[in-house]
Write a protein that binds this DNA or RNA. Sequence first.
DNA 1: AGAGATTTGTACGTATGTATG
DNA 2: TCATACATACGTACAAATCTC
Lengths: 133, 133
Amino acid sequence: MIDPSSDRAVFRQLADLLRGRITSGDLAPGASLPSELRLAQEYGLSRTSVRQAIALLRSEGLVIVQPPRGTFVRTTEPTETVTLLKGDTASARMPTPAERRELEIGEGVPVLVVFRADGSRELYPADRIRVGR
Amino acid sequence: MIDPSSDRAVFRQLADLLRGRITSGDLAPGASLPSELRLAQEYGLSRTSVRQAIALLRSEGLVIVQPPRGTFVRTTEPTETVTLLKGDTASARMPTPAERRELEIGEGVPVLVVFRADGSRELYPADRIRVGR
DNA sequence: AGAGATTTGTACGTATGTATG
DNA sequence: TCATACATACGTACAAATCTC
Protein backbone atom coordinates (compact mmCIF):
# COMPACT_ATOMS: atom_id res chain seq x y z
CA MET A 1 0.00 0.00 0.00
CA ILE A 2 2.88 2.34 0.78
CA ASP A 3 5.91 2.22 -1.45
CA PRO A 4 9.07 3.75 0.05
CA SER A 5 10.77 3.62 -3.34
CA SER A 6 8.04 5.71 -4.94
CA ASP A 7 8.65 9.28 -6.04
CA ARG A 8 5.77 10.35 -3.83
CA ALA A 9 6.85 10.88 -0.22
CA VAL A 10 5.67 8.15 2.11
CA PHE A 11 3.92 10.63 4.39
CA ARG A 12 1.96 11.90 1.38
CA GLN A 13 1.06 8.35 0.45
CA LEU A 14 -0.22 7.76 3.97
CA ALA A 15 -2.17 11.03 3.85
CA ASP A 16 -3.68 10.00 0.51
CA LEU A 17 -4.69 6.69 2.00
CA LEU A 18 -6.33 8.19 5.08
CA ARG A 19 -7.96 10.96 3.03
CA GLY A 20 -9.44 8.30 0.80
CA ARG A 21 -10.88 6.44 3.77
CA ILE A 22 -12.42 9.67 5.02
CA THR A 23 -13.96 10.88 1.77
CA SER A 24 -15.25 7.39 0.99
CA GLY A 25 -17.02 7.28 4.33
CA ASP A 26 -15.02 4.32 5.59
CA LEU A 27 -13.90 6.69 8.33
CA ALA A 28 -17.11 8.57 9.09
CA PRO A 29 -17.33 12.00 10.74
CA GLY A 30 -16.48 11.62 14.42
CA ALA A 31 -14.62 8.35 13.90
CA SER A 32 -11.21 8.06 15.48
CA LEU A 33 -8.09 7.39 13.47
CA PRO A 34 -5.61 4.77 14.67
CA SER A 35 -2.99 6.18 17.01
CA GLU A 36 0.26 7.48 15.58
CA LEU A 37 2.15 4.52 16.99
CA ARG A 38 -0.42 2.14 15.54
CA LEU A 39 -0.16 3.69 12.07
CA ALA A 40 3.64 3.70 12.26
CA GLN A 41 3.71 0.00 13.06
CA GLU A 42 0.96 -0.93 10.62
CA TYR A 43 2.69 0.73 7.66
CA GLY A 44 6.29 0.33 8.76
CA LEU A 45 6.92 4.07 9.04
CA SER A 46 8.51 6.27 11.65
CA ARG A 47 6.23 8.19 13.95
CA THR A 48 7.67 11.33 12.41
CA SER A 49 6.31 10.42 8.99
CA VAL A 50 2.93 9.51 10.46
CA ARG A 51 2.79 12.90 12.15
CA GLN A 52 3.64 14.63 8.88
CA ALA A 53 0.75 12.85 7.20
CA ILE A 54 -1.69 13.80 9.95
CA ALA A 55 -0.43 17.39 9.96
CA LEU A 56 -1.36 17.51 6.28
CA LEU A 57 -4.90 16.32 6.99
CA ARG A 58 -5.19 18.84 9.82
CA SER A 59 -4.21 21.70 7.51
CA GLU A 60 -6.86 20.49 5.07
CA GLY A 61 -9.45 20.63 7.82
CA LEU A 62 -10.26 16.94 7.51
CA VAL A 63 -9.35 15.84 11.03
CA ILE A 64 -9.06 17.36 14.46
CA VAL A 65 -6.65 16.28 17.16
CA GLN A 66 -7.55 16.24 20.82
CA PRO A 67 -4.36 15.47 22.72
CA PRO A 68 -3.98 13.04 24.12
CA ARG A 69 -7.37 11.52 23.36
CA GLY A 70 -6.71 10.88 19.72
CA THR A 71 -7.36 12.08 16.19
CA PHE A 72 -10.88 12.26 14.81
CA VAL A 73 -12.60 12.88 11.50
CA ARG A 74 -14.10 16.33 11.64
CA THR A 75 -17.87 16.52 11.97
CA THR A 76 -19.72 19.01 9.78
CA GLU A 77 -21.35 21.78 11.77
CA PRO A 78 -24.87 23.07 11.18
CA THR A 79 -24.66 26.13 8.95
CA GLU A 80 -26.28 29.52 9.41
CA THR A 81 -26.48 32.05 6.64
CA VAL A 82 -25.38 35.66 6.94
CA THR A 83 -27.15 37.96 4.51
CA LEU A 84 -25.17 40.20 2.18
CA LEU A 85 -26.83 43.53 1.52
CA LYS A 86 -26.36 45.77 -1.47
CA GLY A 87 -22.76 46.97 -1.60
CA ASP A 88 -21.43 44.30 0.75
CA THR A 89 -18.71 41.88 -0.25
CA ALA A 90 -17.16 38.84 1.40
CA SER A 91 -13.93 36.92 1.17
CA ALA A 92 -12.07 34.23 3.07
CA ARG A 93 -8.58 33.66 4.43
CA MET A 94 -6.91 31.70 7.17
CA PRO A 95 -7.40 33.23 10.62
CA THR A 96 -4.63 34.66 12.76
CA PRO A 97 -3.95 32.78 15.99
CA ALA A 98 -5.78 35.53 17.90
CA GLU A 99 -8.85 35.20 15.68
CA ARG A 100 -8.78 31.43 16.06
CA ARG A 101 -8.91 31.75 19.82
CA GLU A 102 -11.58 34.44 19.80
CA LEU A 103 -13.95 32.77 17.36
CA GLU A 104 -13.08 29.23 18.47
CA ILE A 105 -12.03 28.25 14.99
CA GLY A 106 -10.59 24.77 14.52
CA GLU A 107 -7.44 23.95 12.62
CA GLY A 108 -7.72 24.02 8.86
CA VAL A 109 -10.85 26.18 9.00
CA PRO A 110 -10.88 29.57 7.20
CA VAL A 111 -12.61 32.75 8.34
CA LEU A 112 -15.27 34.41 6.24
CA VAL A 113 -14.71 38.15 6.17
CA VAL A 114 -17.77 40.26 5.37
CA PHE A 115 -17.09 43.81 4.26
CA ARG A 116 -20.18 45.92 4.82
CA ALA A 117 -21.00 48.84 2.56
CA ASP A 118 -20.51 51.20 5.51
CA GLY A 119 -16.88 50.10 5.86
CA SER A 120 -17.37 47.81 8.86
CA ARG A 121 -16.10 44.24 8.89
CA GLU A 122 -17.42 41.01 10.36
CA LEU A 123 -15.61 37.70 10.88
CA TYR A 124 -17.22 34.26 10.92
CA PRO A 125 -15.95 30.68 11.16
CA ALA A 126 -16.29 29.30 7.64
CA ASP A 127 -17.36 25.85 8.83
CA ARG A 128 -20.48 27.19 10.59
CA ILE A 129 -21.45 30.17 8.49
CA ARG A 130 -22.16 30.87 4.85
CA VAL A 131 -23.14 34.09 3.13
CA GLY A 132 -26.18 34.58 0.92
CA ARG A 133 -28.64 37.09 -0.44
CA MET B 1 14.00 36.82 22.34
CA ILE B 2 13.24 33.10 22.53
CA ASP B 3 12.91 31.51 25.92
CA PRO B 4 13.33 27.71 25.95
CA SER B 5 12.06 27.57 29.53
CA SER B 6 8.81 29.28 28.59
CA ASP B 7 5.51 27.42 28.53
CA ARG B 8 5.08 28.46 24.94
CA ALA B 9 6.82 26.11 22.53
CA VAL B 10 9.96 27.57 21.02
CA PHE B 11 8.72 27.00 17.48
CA ARG B 12 5.59 28.99 18.33
CA GLN B 13 7.74 31.76 19.77
CA LEU B 14 9.75 31.88 16.56
CA ALA B 15 6.55 31.89 14.51
CA ASP B 16 5.21 34.77 16.65
CA LEU B 17 8.42 36.67 16.06
CA LEU B 18 8.41 36.20 12.29
CA ARG B 19 4.66 36.88 12.08
CA GLY B 20 5.26 40.12 13.90
CA ARG B 21 7.95 41.15 11.45
CA ILE B 22 5.57 40.38 8.58
CA THR B 23 2.49 42.16 9.89
CA SER B 24 4.56 45.16 10.96
CA GLY B 25 5.94 45.49 7.46
CA ASP B 26 9.52 44.88 8.53
CA LEU B 27 9.34 41.89 6.21
CA ALA B 28 7.37 43.30 3.28
CA PRO B 29 5.42 41.23 0.72
CA GLY B 30 7.89 39.49 -1.56
CA ALA B 31 10.74 39.75 0.92
CA SER B 32 12.70 36.60 1.61
CA LEU B 33 13.00 35.11 5.07
CA PRO B 34 16.41 33.99 6.34
CA SER B 35 17.22 30.39 5.47
CA GLU B 36 16.27 27.64 7.90
CA LEU B 37 19.89 27.09 8.80
CA ARG B 38 20.37 30.80 9.36
CA LEU B 39 17.35 31.04 11.67
CA ALA B 40 18.44 27.93 13.56
CA GLN B 41 21.87 29.40 14.22
CA GLU B 42 20.58 32.88 14.94
CA TYR B 43 18.13 31.71 17.61
CA GLY B 44 19.97 28.62 18.80
CA LEU B 45 17.27 26.21 17.68
CA SER B 46 17.29 22.96 15.78
CA ARG B 47 16.35 23.04 12.13
CA THR B 48 13.36 20.87 13.07
CA SER B 49 11.97 23.62 15.28
CA VAL B 50 12.58 26.26 12.63
CA ARG B 51 10.72 24.13 10.09
CA GLN B 52 7.80 23.74 12.49
CA ALA B 53 7.61 27.52 12.86
CA ILE B 54 7.65 28.06 9.11
CA ALA B 55 5.08 25.31 8.58
CA LEU B 56 2.80 27.26 10.89
CA LEU B 57 3.23 30.44 8.85
CA ARG B 58 2.59 28.46 5.67
CA SER B 59 -0.67 27.10 7.03
CA GLU B 60 -1.68 30.65 7.91
CA GLY B 61 -1.04 31.73 4.35
CA LEU B 62 1.58 34.27 5.39
CA VAL B 63 4.56 32.86 3.50
CA ILE B 64 5.20 30.71 0.47
CA VAL B 65 8.13 28.38 -0.02
CA GLN B 66 9.87 27.86 -3.33
CA PRO B 67 12.34 25.04 -2.85
CA PRO B 68 15.19 25.45 -2.97
CA ARG B 69 15.05 29.17 -3.63
CA GLY B 70 13.82 30.15 -0.22
CA THR B 71 10.82 31.29 1.78
CA PHE B 72 9.02 34.53 0.91
CA VAL B 73 6.32 36.75 2.36
CA ARG B 74 3.17 36.25 0.33
CA THR B 75 2.22 39.07 -2.00
CA THR B 76 -1.43 40.11 -2.13
CA GLU B 77 -3.12 39.36 -5.43
CA PRO B 78 -5.47 41.71 -7.26
CA THR B 79 -9.02 40.78 -6.36
CA GLU B 80 -11.99 40.30 -8.66
CA THR B 81 -15.57 40.14 -7.44
CA VAL B 82 -18.02 37.37 -8.31
CA THR B 83 -21.64 38.44 -8.09
CA LEU B 84 -24.13 36.52 -5.96
CA LEU B 85 -27.62 36.41 -7.45
CA LYS B 86 -30.87 35.90 -5.59
CA GLY B 87 -30.89 32.46 -3.97
CA ASP B 88 -27.14 31.95 -4.24
CA THR B 89 -24.96 31.30 -1.21
CA ALA B 90 -21.23 31.00 -0.68
CA SER B 91 -18.88 29.47 1.84
CA ALA B 92 -15.20 28.65 2.20
CA ARG B 93 -13.05 25.68 3.14
CA MET B 94 -9.56 24.41 2.54
CA PRO B 95 -9.13 22.90 -0.92
CA THR B 96 -8.39 19.27 -1.61
CA PRO B 97 -4.97 18.59 -3.15
CA ALA B 98 -6.67 18.06 -6.53
CA GLU B 99 -8.44 21.42 -6.29
CA ARG B 100 -5.20 23.11 -5.30
CA ARG B 101 -3.50 21.82 -8.41
CA GLU B 102 -6.40 22.62 -10.70
CA LEU B 103 -7.03 26.17 -9.49
CA GLU B 104 -3.35 26.85 -8.73
CA ILE B 105 -4.11 27.65 -5.13
CA GLY B 106 -1.16 28.37 -2.87
CA GLU B 107 -0.61 26.90 0.55
CA GLY B 108 -2.73 28.30 3.32
CA VAL B 109 -5.28 29.70 0.86
CA PRO B 110 -8.95 28.64 1.14
CA VAL B 111 -11.40 28.08 -1.72
CA LEU B 112 -14.58 30.09 -2.01
CA VAL B 113 -17.46 27.80 -2.90
CA VAL B 114 -20.43 29.48 -4.58
CA PHE B 115 -23.68 27.54 -4.52
CA ARG B 116 -25.95 28.79 -7.28
CA ALA B 117 -29.71 28.76 -6.92
CA ASP B 118 -29.92 26.21 -9.73
CA GLY B 119 -27.82 23.74 -7.75
CA SER B 120 -24.55 24.27 -9.60
CA ARG B 121 -21.32 25.02 -7.78
CA GLU B 122 -18.32 27.19 -8.55
CA LEU B 123 -14.88 27.20 -6.93
CA TYR B 124 -12.53 30.18 -6.65
CA PRO B 125 -9.18 30.86 -4.99
CA ALA B 126 -10.01 32.99 -1.95
CA ASP B 127 -6.92 35.17 -2.32
CA ARG B 128 -7.94 36.40 -5.76
CA ILE B 129 -11.73 36.41 -5.62
CA ARG B 130 -14.40 37.83 -3.38
CA VAL B 131 -18.17 37.61 -3.62
CA GLY B 132 -20.55 40.51 -3.66
CA ARG B 133 -23.99 41.69 -4.73
C1' DA C 1 29.53 22.93 -19.52
C1' DG C 2 30.69 21.58 -15.21
C1' DA C 3 31.61 21.76 -10.20
C1' DG C 4 30.41 23.10 -5.91
C1' DA C 5 27.62 25.58 -2.56
C1' DT C 6 23.10 26.62 -0.84
C1' DT C 7 18.38 25.56 0.50
C1' DT C 8 14.38 23.03 1.14
C1' DG C 9 12.28 18.14 1.38
C1' DT C 10 12.17 13.64 3.23
C1' DA C 11 12.99 10.13 6.74
C1' DC C 12 14.94 8.17 10.39
C1' DG C 13 16.17 7.97 15.47
C1' DT C 14 15.93 9.38 20.60
C1' DA C 15 14.18 11.60 24.65
C1' DT C 16 11.07 13.99 27.65
C1' DG C 17 6.70 16.35 28.96
C1' DT C 18 1.71 16.49 29.68
C1' DA C 19 -2.95 15.17 29.81
C1' DT C 20 -6.33 11.54 29.56
C1' DG C 21 -8.51 7.36 30.99
C1' DT D 1 -1.01 4.24 39.89
C1' DC D 2 -0.08 3.07 35.36
C1' DA D 3 -0.45 2.83 30.47
C1' DT D 4 -1.63 5.40 26.40
C1' DA D 5 -1.25 9.13 23.08
C1' DC D 6 -0.10 13.48 21.36
C1' DA D 7 3.46 17.63 21.72
C1' DT D 8 7.91 19.30 21.80
C1' DA D 9 12.81 19.25 20.72
C1' DC D 10 17.05 17.61 19.74
C1' DG D 11 20.12 15.05 16.48
C1' DT D 12 21.64 12.74 11.79
C1' DA D 13 21.66 11.73 6.86
C1' DC D 14 20.70 12.00 2.13
C1' DA D 15 17.99 13.75 -2.06
C1' DA D 16 16.69 17.22 -5.36
C1' DA D 17 16.60 21.62 -7.36
C1' DT D 18 18.64 26.09 -7.98
C1' DC D 19 22.28 29.30 -8.15
C1' DT D 20 27.05 30.79 -8.59
C1' DC D 21 31.65 30.56 -10.12
